[in-house]
Amino acid sequence: MTSARRGTWAQFRTHRGAVIGAGILLIAAFAVLFGPHLWSIDPHLIDIRARNQGISFAHPLGADRLGRDTLARMLAGGRVSLAVAGAAMGLALSLGAVIGVASGYFRRLDGPLMRLTDLFLALPLLPLLLVIIALFRDALRAAFGPETGIFILIASVIGATSWMKTARIVRGEVLALKEREFVLASGALGAPAGRLIFRHILPGVISPIMISAALGVGDAIITESALSFLGLGFPPDFPTWGRLLYDSTDYLQQYPGRVLWPGLAISLTVLSINYVGDGLRDALDPRTRG
């Protein structure tokens, strides 16, 4: 086990883009986790005298139309964006893994579950996401408060509409794995289905799940920012990267530089995630290993 893990790590390290990507991701995660403690300006603090200020010592990335510090808002926004993406990806993965394992392992469930997957794949996702969020926003806002409500809504809606790829990949792997000798032997010895799945099958499908986890986070970040960009994400006073980008586009003519920071943050994060995903695929797929 340890030597296999070391082999994976050695293979991952040879992928230069993946290593750089992982480094950038670590920096981004560190920045949004600890940044607000180090750069302790309140992102909601309105300082009207600093309105529309450019880059200065007091405001390293400038200030917006109400004089709120852009750096502080970027850090706070990154926290929300990454948290939404993480939560959505977690939900999508668990749904995908459960459905994939169930339909691969239990033959009776295979037909209905795969038809369900096909149905979800045939739904126009972005329009539906917009519709669901627009229609259920007020109800959840009333139930959980403006910020938590929207967070729950966006994370669960993104998660519930992005599990299909994972489910299909996991199903394929399970179908192949359950005919292998060690699984058959364990079944012949009388192991119940639950034990077979958790002890023998799940560890075998962990690498495709990890790869789709990596790529899923990137997709979730883009979807969340796209929703915010279309004005159907978080409320205006609640910064996320997508929301910051959307707010800055109103001042495109006067302050074109302002769109740069949130856009760069989204793009760099997603780019790094995609590189890490590529590296993981190369490292975890034994067929490509030299």
Partner: peptide, 12 residues
């Protein structure tokens, strides 16, 4: 190209 979202390339 496919990491940078269209709403950033467009605005840029």
């Amino acid at each position: 190209g496919f990491s940078v979202p269209t709403f950033f390339t467009g605005v840029l």
